Amino acid sequence: MSLLERAPGGSLADDRRVQALGVVAVLALAVVPFVTTDSLTGLILTGLVYVMLGVSWNLIAGYAGQISLGHAAFFGMGAFASAWVTTPSGAGLPEALQIPVVAAVLVGGVVSALIALVIGPVIFRLTGHYFAIGTLALAAVIELVMNDRRDLTGGATGYYVNADIGLGETISHGDMMFFLTLLATVITVWVTYYIVRGPAGLGMKAIHDDEEAASSLGVNPLKYKMYAFVASSFFAGIAGALYAHFSLYINAQSTLAVTWTVDSLVVVILGGMGTFAGPFFGAGLFLLLDNGLSAIVGGWAEAVEGILIILFIIFLPSGLYGLVDDYLVSETADTGGEMDADVADD
């Protein structure tokens, strides 16, 4: 008997044991700042940011089938937009624009979503690898422009961010940002789950499997691509805003670096693309690899990490979730349907 059971066509997230495990995991994370060091709290916060990036990138790539290589642009623009309204003086803006950190985080997500909404109809004229290259070029252009606008971004030097939440010495800045990031991660996962399980998710899966067939059946491909693109960009912007206000420093070169896109992609590949739980497994493994390999192999850490990722792509294309699904999950028969059939036979 397998550890977990799933009805045919169902989702493990519907299992009450899985839901209970999720609640326990969130409660365990909530006590992290009280039982660990600041450095470990910051490391776990980074892991939560990876979860948000993985979940958001998986929405556009894993479910809608649009491989975007411009995720870093939305992460970075969310960071900058939120910094502009918490630290307007750093960008030469009027102090009257200053708002609390929580509201600024939402501003970061909305700005990223609006950018996706504007450029989406244009960028989706490209398909396949042309779309991937187009999004990568878009991210590079945004990074160049933001790096050049020293008046708004501080250029390569950047500037420090004001993230005073106004709680005095009641709770430290790092702990407060941890709780905000945990809350944002839970909301991101919850909203994404209902998107994937709802009509929008069905539309995304349809264009992922066969866009022409879906279009012939009345599904509007652009509508669902835009839905996934805007939602994905919003959550990436939220992640960027939270990370900027945790680190208290921002600059165009690092905040908009393609590294954030690569990290998002790696998290999803390691966990399992197109699976809801994949980004959780991927973020945990990526965090261990990224921080543990250097202690084991020293300067060879990046090379070993790259080799492991290649091995995953070749031998475990469904990621860690595939292993869990193969060995720990079994599909249960529809007993209700079988009972109805027996009654009918009688």
Rank of each mutant, 00 (worst) to 15 (best):
D263W: 12
A341N: 05
G166E: 15
K223C: 04
G76K: 01
A277N: 05
Y160P: 07
L4K: 07
A341L: 13
Y194K: 02
A344N: 08
T170H: 09
I314T: 05
F80S: 03
I296E: 00
L287E: 09
V24R: 01
T192H: 09
I195M: 07
G65Q: 10
L285Y: 11
A28S: 11
A139R: 02
S82N: 08
S294P: 07
W190K: 03
D148G: 04
K205Q: 15
G174R: 10
L308A: 13
S264I: 08
L59W: 04
L4I: 14
D340R: 07
G78A: 02
G10H: 11
G299M: 03
V196C: 11
L27Q: 03
F234G: 00
R197L: 12
A236V: 01
L27T: 07
T335K: 06
L293W: 10
W190P: 00
I314N: 00
G284E: 10
A13I: 14
D346V: 14
T192I: 13
L69Q: 02
G198V: 08
I314Q: 02
G337F: 14
D345S: 11
G76L: 05
V26D: 08
V102E: 14
M146H: 10
E302R: 06
G65M: 11
E338K: 04
G134L: 09
G92S: 05
G322W: 13
L144K: 06
L53P: 00
V219P: 03
G166R: 07
V118F: 13
E302T: 12
E305P: 02
A239Q: 06
G336C: 04
T87V: 07
I313S: 01
S318Y: 14
Y50T: 01
N58G: 02
D340M: 14
F124N: 02
Y321A: 09
Y243V: 02
M226F: 05
M77W: 12
L69G: 00
Y130P: 00
W300D: 10
V343R: 13
A257N: 14
S232H: 01
V196P: 03
V101E: 09
W260K: 04
T46A: 12
M273D: 03
G155L: 10
M339T: 09
P33I: 10
H245K: 02
L126H: 04
A303Y: 13
Q98R: 15
E95D: 15
A79P: 00
V23N: 01
S11P: 01
G298W: 12
N162Q: 13
A137T: 05
D148L: 06
V186D: 08
S254A: 13
A231K: 00
S233F: 07
P279A: 12
G272K: 10
H208Y: 15
A20I: 15
S254V: 14
T185W: 14
A7L: 15
T335V: 13
T188W: 08
A277S: 13
G62D: 12
P199Y: 12
A140R: 03
V145Q: 04
V324R: 02
V101F: 08
S264A: 15
L152E: 09
V141P: 01
T127R: 12
A295K: 07
F80E: 03
